[in-house]
Amino acid sequence: MFVLEVGSVLTIGLILAVVIVVAAMLIWVERRLLSFWQERLGPNRVGWFGLLQVVADMIKIFTKEDWIPPFADRFSFVIAPAIIMSVVLLSFAVIPFAPNIGVVDSNVGVLFILAMASLGAYSVMLGGLSSDNKYALLGSLRAAAQMVSYEVFMGISLLGVVALSGSFNLRVIVEAQADGWYVIPQFAGFVIFLIAGIAESHRLPFDIPEAEQEICSGYHTEYSGMKFGMFFVAEYIGLVLVSSLITVLFFGGWLGPSFLPPIIWFAIKSSMFIAFFILLRAAIPRPRYDQLMNYGWLFLLPVSLLNLLVTGAIILSTQ
C-alpha cells in the first residue's frame, strides 16, 4: 500500500500533491518568465526570488469573501469551477509518469482523456451561463464552440499514434516508442495536437473565451475568491496535462538514457513544453473568433484526416 508502484495510496497521494503544487508554482514561473522576456522583473519580493508569491496569492485567494452574485444561478455557479478542477485532475489518473508511477493502468487511457476534455467544456459553459452576465455569456458561447470543435481535431490527431502502437493504453504507447519517438512518423499529428491542446486549455493565442480586451474575463467575469482561483489553477493544471500528454504521446514519455531516472526524463520533457506554451503566450496575438473556427474546420480537420489516412495506408502496406 505504501510502496511506490502504480495504484498505491502513496503514489496517488504524491501525484495529487505534486500536480497541484506544480500548477500553483507555474503561476510564479509564468510570471517570472514572461517578465524576463518583457524586460521587467516580475514578482521578486516575497521569499527567495519571489518564490513565496504563490503562497501569498493563495492566502489572499483563500481568505477572500466567497461571493455569489445575487442574480446568478447558485447551483451551477458553484458547481462550474468544481467541474473543471475535477476533470483536469481526473485526467492525470491515466498519465504514465514512470514505469512505477501512475494512478491506474487503463487500457482506454486515450479515450478517458478525451472524455474528460469534453466534460471540461461543461464547466466553462455553465460558469458563463449561470453568471447571468452578458460578457460571461459571450465568453461561454465562444468557449463552447471552440472547445467542441478543437476536441474533434484533438481526437483525430491522436488516432495516428493509437494506430501505430495498436493500443489506447498510454503505457503501451510509451513503451512502443522505445525504438523511436512518434513525433517523427506523426509530426503532423503532433502539431495538430499541440494547437488543439492550447485551444483546449484556452491560453493565448487561443484565449478567445476570456479575451480581456474584448469581453473582460469572459466566462469567469463574475467569479472571485477561491471559485475564481479554481478556474485559474485548473488552467495551469490543464497546461501541465497537455504538456504531459505531448510527452507521453509523441516524445517517448519517461524513456531516456539511463543516467537519469525515468521520472526525471518525464519532468524535463514536460517542462520544455510548459516553457514553450508560456513563450507562445508572450509572442503571439489573438486571432478573431471566426478566424479560429475557420482555421480549425477548414485547415486542421482536413490535415488531421489526411494524416490518419496516410498513417493507415502505411501501416496496411507494411503489414
Binding site: 518583457q38 521587467r40 496575438p285
Partner: peptide, 16 residues
C-alpha cells in the same frame, strides 16, 4: 494597439 489585438509583450517594450 498590439495589446488590443491580443499581443501581450509589445506594450512592455514600448514602455521601456
Amino acid at each position: 494597439f498590439a495589446q488590443d489585438v491580443g499581443q501581450l509583450s509589445p506594450i512592455f517594450y514600448m514602455f521601456v
